[in-house]
Amino acid sequence: MYSAAFMFEPGTYDDRFHALDALIEEAARTTPGYLGSELWLSPDAVLRNATYFWETEESLRAFSAHPKHLEAKRQYTQWYKGFHIVISQVLRSYGDGKISHITPNQRAHA
């Protein structure tokens, strides 16, 4: 499993942003290997983190090459003050079983 964490500081969103954002979300959901996403805010609510989860690196790469995603990348300065992306391979995930998450819980519960 792989994750792509897209950390960004929002700027000003317009109608074109919202339309393109909806198309990108649809492209992610319909890309084979897409597992889900989650959104987090920094404690001061200035930065946001949208993390997407993928079965394989190939599925993540397929999404990153989608034409609408590439279009948004070319125009990001219109809508974001800055961004940083972290691509990670998920090696393991676990918890007490009381919180549902996209990643599998790999620890047995007593």
Rank of each mutant, 00 (worst) to 15 (best):
A72S: 06
R74A: 15
A72N: 02
S37H: 10
R29D: 00
S37G: 12
S64H: 08
L41K: 10
H66G: 04
A27Q: 05
H66A: 08
Q75E: 15
A62R: 06
A19T: 08
V46N: 06
F63R: 02
A28H: 07
G33C: 06
A50E: 04
L23F: 07
D21C: 04
P32L: 11
Y76C: 01
A62F: 01
L70M: 10
I24Q: 06
E57H: 12
H69A: 01
D21H: 15
E58C: 06
P67D: 11
R29G: 01
T51H: 05
E26I: 00
P67A: 11
E25Y: 00
N49K: 14
S64N: 13
K68S: 04
W40K: 05
P67S: 13
A50P: 00
L47W: 07
L23K: 15
E58S: 14
T77Q: 13
T30C: 08
H66I: 02
T56V: 09
E38H: 10
K68H: 06
L39D: 11
E57L: 14
G33Y: 00
E26V: 01
K68M: 05
N49M: 15
S59Y: 04
A28Q: 08
G33D: 08
R74W: 05
G36K: 07
T77H: 13
A45W: 14
K73D: 04
A28K: 03
A72I: 01
F63H: 04
Y76E: 04
F63K: 02
T51S: 10
L47G: 02
A27T: 02
E55S: 11
K73I: 08
A72V: 00
S59C: 11
V46G: 07
P43V: 09
A28E: 02
A65R: 10
W40F: 13
E38M: 11
L39Q: 09
A22E: 10
A50H: 05
H66P: 02
N49I: 15
R48W: 07
K73S: 09
S59G: 14
T30R: 15
F53M: 10
D21M: 04
A65P: 00
Q75G: 12
E25G: 00
D44A: 06
E26P: 02
F63A: 07
R61D: 15
A22Y: 01
T77G: 10
E71D: 13
I24S: 08
S64V: 04
E55G: 09
D44F: 05
Y76N: 06
P32G: 09
E57D: 15
H69P: 01
A50D: 08
A65W: 01
F63N: 03
E25P: 00
D44V: 05
A72Q: 03
L41N: 11
A22V: 00
L47T: 07
W40D: 04
T31G: 10
K68I: 00
L20Q: 05
P43K: 11
T77L: 13
Y34K: 04
A62G: 06
L23V: 02
K73A: 09
P67V: 05
E57T: 11
T31H: 07
F53K: 04
E57Q: 14
S37L: 10
D21T: 05
L39A: 11
Q75A: 15
P32Q: 12
I24H: 08
A72H: 03
L20N: 02
R29S: 03
D21R: 06
Y76I: 11
A65S: 08
A19F: 03
W40C: 06
A62S: 13
A27E: 00
I24N: 12
L35N: 09
L35G: 06
P32V: 12
N49V: 14
E55V: 05
